[in-house]
Structures are given as structure tokens and as C-alpha cells.
């Protein structure tokens, strides 16, 4: 039996109650909307990218604890990363939630490893990351987890 506490760690509750980097960002130069049609969650991600480096990342929207914590942790992790490093993080994060060993050290993102035991919630954890991919490509249409 999957332990609920593996999924809902205290850190995740903290990020859900007090998400980091939450709110608008008028000076952003990249933006994308993400949508999870399964649960109706929506998320807007904004980035300030200068010389290929993500200087700032903020998000807005309403979602479940997993998607909110994931967006909060992701925006923390992205600061100072190059676009290539951000893409590597996504690859590693995706490997982790799919139950594969991640190719790189994920740091604090590792608290979401419990998601791998709850396949129905993988889309919640990856919504912010799919939105990041769209924002880096500066896609204007909303990305979907479907």
C-alpha cells in the first residue's frame, strides 16, 4: 500500500499553504498558461530571461496541493538556471515522478518523489513543468497535460 505521507510530506503542505514566487510579474518577458483538463487546474507561469539565464520565475493560478507545491518548488529551482539547465531539470523531474532514477541531482524537488506511487497525480506534479517548456518556447496557446 502506498503511504499517503510519502506523497503529502510536510514540505509540500508548507508550499501549498504559502507558495513561493506566487503572484503577478509585470516585467516578465516569457509567459505561458497551463491547463489540466482532468481536474480543471489552471496555472500561469511568467519568467524573466536575460542572456539565456532565468533571472526570475513566478506563477499564479489555482490547483491542488501537489500542483501548487510543484510550481512553488520549480520556480525556486529555476532562478539562475540557463534554459538548457532548466530543460535538464524537467527531464530529471519527469524521470523521478515516473519512477525512474533521475539523471541529475534534483535537490529540494526530490520531496515530490512520492508522486511516483500515485500515477493519477503525475499530471498534477508536471503541470508547472509542461508550462515551463511552453514559456521557454514562448508559446502563446495554453498547454495541456493531456
Amino acid at each position: 500500500m502506498s503511504d499517503l505521507r510519502d506523497l503529502y510530506q510536510e514540505v509540500i503542505f508548507d508550499h501549498n499553504r504559502h507558495p513561493h514566487n506566487f503572484g503577478p510579474m509585470p516585467h516578465a518577458n516569457r509567459q505561458a498558461d497551463g491547463f489540466n483538463p482532468l481536474c480543471g487546474d489552471r496555472l500561469t507561469l511568467r519568467l524573466l530571461v536575460e542572456n539565456g539565464v532565468i533571472q526570475e520565475a513566478r506563477f499564479e493560478g489555482a490547483g491542488c496541493a501537489i500542483s501548487t507545491a510543484s510550481a512553488s518548488l520549480m520556480t525556486d529551482a529555476l532562478k539562475g538556471k540557463t534554459e538548457a539547465e532548466a530543460n535538464q531539470l524537467f527531464t530529471g523531474f519527469h524521470q523521478m515522478v515516473m519512477g525512474e532514477p533521475p539523471a541529475i541531482d534534483l535537490g529540494k524537488l526530490a520531496v515530490l518523489a512520492g508522486v511516483q506511487e500515485f500515477p493519477a497525480r503525475v499530471k498534477c506534479a508536471t503541470l508547472a513543468w509542461h508550462t515551463l517548456t511552453a514559456a521557454l518556447k514562448n508559446e502563446t496557446t495554453a498547454v495541456s497535460t493531456e
Partner: peptide, 13 residues
């Protein structure tokens, strides 16, 4: 304070 999706997972458990 609790998203329905989180309710669903915990109830399933």
C-alpha cells in the same frame, strides 16, 4: 483549504 483532487487521493487511500 483543500483542493478536491487532494480529497480524492486521501479518500482513495
Amino acid at each position: 483549504g483543500v483542493h478536491p483532487h487532494d480529497i480524492g487521493t486521501i479518500l482513495d487511500n
